[in-house]
Amino acid sequence: MDALKSAGRALIRSPSLAKQSWGGGGRHRKLPENWTDTRETLLEGMLFSLKYLGMTLVEQPKGEELSAAAIKRIVATAKASGKKLQKVTLKVSPRGIILTDNLTNQLIENVSIYRISYCTADKMHDKVFAYIAQSQHNQSLECHAFLCTKRKMAQAVTLTVAQAFKVAFEFWQVSKEEKEKRDKASQEGGDVLGARQDCTPPLKSLVATGNLLDLEETAKAPLSTVSANTTNMDEVPRPQALSGSSVVWELDDGLDEAFSRLAQSRTNPQVLDTGLTAQDMHYAQCLSPVDWDKPDSSGTEQDDLFSF
């Protein structure tokens, strides 16, 4: 819950932080000083300027060897085509990944977070970031790969997607708890209302004896509580940590079903599988986004697919 609360507080303090972009060759504004600060901008989305290598189908939802083989196929196909790589912007948030063309600003792909089953910074092609997700059109699994400016960037994108998945799962947990509370309150309110109706004398007997209905007592009954809980029953509950912020979080049926399955089948359902080692994760978390744009010590960066 700490990640969720800190993310909400950060967004309320400075929503404009989320509009910064990394990996864009110096076009961005001043960047936060450390990885923790940038992680807090996830709610509205972190932007990464990358190059799209392509996509291939895979048979399993996750796995280092599986993704490595898929990336190898994608890279080989991209090299064989001889075409310049498409420059894209990857927007990562707890909602998922939005992929747009840098030149036309046209939407290429919009992947809900619950469809993503794996992401990684490839070991062999260490400047490549990739994720595996279920197609929104059918049940097939797709591996999408992107060329980053350097290994640090690939690791940073991988960690960002993993963190977005974690925050999304926490949102789901909060929403589920809130819905259970509202359902319980609604049920209790309905029981109270039913009890009051059972003990209320029939209207005919009131008229016969000349008694008047006590409207004041009726007004004191917990009807307002019942209506408050039943009027918006169809509205999706939102985490309290975000009250007053500009973010509107809505959970669709697909996300609810997917996270429910994860909660039942996995020990740590909030953790998205990645190909990063503990050492890689520690190294990337210690980086400032400013470091992502620094040239690798191995030599001059080449803006070309064939540089790796």
Rank of each mutant, 00 (worst) to 15 (best):
S288V: 03
P295A: 09
Q270A: 02
P295C: 03
Y283E: 00
V58C: 10
A208E: 04
T230P: 03
G24V: 11
L43A: 15
G299L: 03
E178H: 15
E235F: 04
L212N: 07
I116F: 12
Q270Y: 05
K179H: 15
R151C: 02
L193E: 00
Q139V: 15
P15Q: 07
C199L: 04
R13F: 14
L42I: 15
K19F: 02
E257G: 07
P15F: 01
T158A: 05
L43H: 14
E59R: 03
S227T: 09
D256W: 00
L43P: 05
L31A: 01
T36K: 08
E257N: 10
D37C: 12
Y131T: 07
V111W: 15
S21K: 06
D303K: 05
Q240F: 12
Q285P: 03
L11K: 05
G299R: 05
R196W: 01
E188P: 03
I12W: 07
F306M: 03
H144M: 13
C143Y: 14
L193M: 06
T77R: 12
K91C: 13
T225Q: 10
L159I: 11
A69Q: 15
N34G: 15
L85T: 09
D37S: 13
V157Q: 06
D304K: 07
L17F: 04
T56Y: 14
G299K: 07
A185E: 06
K150Y: 04
R115T: 09
E33R: 13
V167R: 09
V226S: 06
L31F: 14
V92G: 11
V247T: 15
A219C: 04
V88I: 14
M55V: 14
L103P: 15
S135Y: 11
Y52W: 03
T120Y: 15
L50V: 14
T158G: 11
V174P: 03
L50N: 13
V88R: 13
P15N: 08
S117V: 15
Q136S: 06
A156H: 00
D126E: 05
D293F: 03
N110I: 05
E180I: 00
F146P: 01
Q187S: 07
E33F: 13
G23W: 12
T267G: 05
F146C: 13
F48S: 11
M46I: 15
L276S: 05
F171G: 12
M153R: 04
E40Y: 14
G24R: 02
D256L: 06
F165P: 01
L31I: 09
L141G: 12
N211S: 10
D293Q: 06
L242C: 05
L57N: 07
V75I: 04
A162S: 11
I98H: 07
T41C: 13
V290A: 10
A185S: 10
T100E: 15
K83S: 12
Y131E: 09
V58Y: 15
L85C: 10
K19D: 14
A80H: 05
N211I: 11
I71E: 03
T231L: 05
I12F: 11
D304N: 14
G25Q: 06
M124T: 03
Q163P: 00
K79Y: 04
S227C: 02
G24T: 10
